[in-house]
């Protein structure tokens, strides 16, 4: 039976008509036109559909949209602020960490979850942090460099904020 639920995505509330069996990935892409989140394997292996729900990584292809009522969903569209890319996104561009780009939204959100918890991760921690995101272009070296660079940018911004 269809029903109307309210989803909070990137800080905005959306009323959306859904069926209980609708998956978050399909609601984001097809009903809300938030096509930044990609659908890859559709069974929770590739990580390209990664979003953050209440700050934790979640696979939108294995999540029922109806189970997200009352929770904060962050997608790639919510990373930029006022037309300025998030430092993680900018680091991916500057370090050439994007080839075909299909894994990028999920990689960026996994990187955000990692850096929110570990602002200065080791290379091993970065690799673990993105271990649930597959890049079939195999551009991992640049991705790891980008995450390390993003960590430095975020640290610098935080230090700057403290000084002000």
């Amino acid at each position: 039976m269809k029903r109307v639920i309210e989803l909070t995505i990137n800080g905005s509330a959306y009323d959306v008509v859904i069926s209980p069996q609708d998956l978050l990935i399909d609601v984001l892409r097809q009903k809300l036109d938030l096509t930044g989140t990609k659908k890859g394997c559709g069974q929770g292996d590739c990580g390209t559909c990664t979003v953050l729900i209440d700050g934790r990584r979640a696979l939108a292809c294995l999540t029922l949209a109806i189970a997200c009522e009352g929770r904060q969903i962050l997608t790639i569209e919510g990373m930029e602020k006022h037309g300025v890319l998030h430092p993680i996104q900018q680091a991916f561009i500057d370090k050439g960490a994007i080839q075909c780009g299909y894994c990028t939204p999920g990689m960026v959100l996994s990187a955000k979850a990692l850096l929110d918890e570990h602002p200065a991760p080791t290379e091993h921690e970065i690799k673990l942090g993105i271990s649930g995101n597959l890049c079939r272009c195999t551009g991992y070296v640049k991705i790891v460099e980008a995450v390390r660079d993003a960590a430095a940018r975020l640290q610098a911004a935080a230090d700057c904020g403290k000084g002000a």
């Binding site: 990584r57 979640a58 696979l59 649930g132």
Partner: peptide
Amino acid sequence: IGSPQIRAM
């Protein structure tokens, strides 16, 4: 178990 995403869910 699985990936960081799977472990979080």
